[in-house]
Design a protein around this nucleic acid. Structure first.
Lengths: 229, 229
DNA sequence: GCAAAAGTGTTTGGTCTACACCCATGA
DNA sequence: TCATGGGTGTAGACCAAACACTTTTGC
């Protein structure tokens, strides 16, 4: 059944359409970015940015659905993800009642750029989202996802899902500073991170800067609750 | 359309059934309790406890749906509520794919007992849930709700939704101790609470104990993020 | 030799914890 | 007068924040 016939049938039962939308964050060129599609509205020529997503079918769990959307749009099989919230989406066509289960995800920009076809999906600067056209209430979802991301950065080791596997402490601090949008004290940051025992030295050096810096990696593979800031 | 015909039609489209289940907590006789219905399984005579809930229809927002379930089952029009999580429910009948949007809610036992018909809905001791029969994976939902409740107790003024409008500091401390299931130091508790400026004295006395105690009420109507413990 | 980023300690103020006794009332 | 729960303060440990200079390298 086509997507269009399906939604028509769903309307006739007077039940809501169940969909999934996903918010994918990355840090690219030291800037927090979103991965989004573009679509025209049916009744106009205007292009708008829209979160990757589609209408849910049976037989597939929510997590599997996420993975399918991700793979379909980016060619990537696994990223860190977390369920965000389930929204009742109000539409301008009053026959439409969409309930959208949303997830957010983190990806390192290296992994993203290696797999993706940039003619089909776009990477856009989070700080500019107020200036661009966004599909319906997807901006509300993005704002909610950003709040959750901020919180998780402060209280867990989630940041490892945005960093590449080896990184310097300065790079890690820059990621915190760009996402949380505030300056952190270098000495206090390093002291705190090293007291948490979540990193190990690789004893390799990053020579891309003037004075070479130690490269670190995370000791734990799993998400861990730790007060970072 | 009957609920049964509706679900049959939904299956034929091979989309998941969308439902809502709600977890209602209260503190009754200094014990954390759940408000649940009872239902027999179709193919057996066994009675099991089930969370209040039903299949979602169009035209009604998620929050409105919650209020409708609450009113239908308890006769109560408003309680504090929060969306919890959206679960993909695996059932023993493989044709069934249920996606359940869950909420949790808090209510003072006075308000609950004033409105409810106890032949239609039950109040049961949270600490005994391992000993009773619970519908499918509703226990998983309850456990998740309890974690969220614990967290919110520690970091917000959410406790006011379980207490009656005027209460003594000892009553407040008892609520924390029964829900979090640990002893708190009386002096430190009172010091912390009073430093937060979230309560005001009513200058009335509770004379039900030996030495009369000051009755307090909350200054803020809204949920507020404050580190309580 | 100088520009650029890496790396490193100490002091201070605030917050958390542990802990024990007197007070007001009802029975 | 005694049993019951209400109410109060202090000392030590720990944690967070503020703050500036030296080191290593590339150019």
């Amino acid at each position: 059944m086509s997507q269009e016939n399906l939604t028509k049938n769903i309307f006739s039962l007077s039940i809501p359409v169940l969909a999934m939308d996903i918010v994918i964050f990355t840090v690219y060129k030291w800037t927090l970015c979103l991965i989004m599609n573009q679509r025209t509205e049916d009744w106009s020529e205007k292009w708008k940015y829209i979160l990757p997503g589609w209408v849910l079918r049976s037989w597939v769990s929510l997590e599997q659905n996420f993975d399918n959307i991700l793979y379909n749009r980016t060619g990537i099989k696994w990223v860190y993800k977390e369920q965000l919230y389930t929204f009742w989406e109000v539409d301008r066509d009053p026959r439409w009642h969409v309930i959208s289960v949303t997830y957010y995800a983190l990806i390192s920009s290296e992994l993203f750029l290696k797999n993706v076809d940039l003619t089909k999906i776009h990477i856009l600067d989070y700080s500019k989202i107020d200036e661009i056209q966004i599909w319906y209430d997807h901006k509300k979802i993005i704002t909610y996802a950003k709040q959750r991301l901020d919180w998780k950065l402060e209280y867990t080791n989630i940041v490892k899902n945005i960093l590449s596997t080896e990184f310097t402490l300065s790079q890690m601090q820059w990621v915190y500073e760009t996402i949380l949008w505030r300056k952190l004290d270098k000495r206090n940051f390093r002291k705190k991170i090293s007291s948490l025992n979540i990193l190990k030295e690789t004893w390799k050096l990053d020579k891309s800067t003037n004075r070479p810096a130690m490269l670190y990696s995370f000791t734990d593979k799993e998400l861990k609750i730790v007060g970072i800031l």
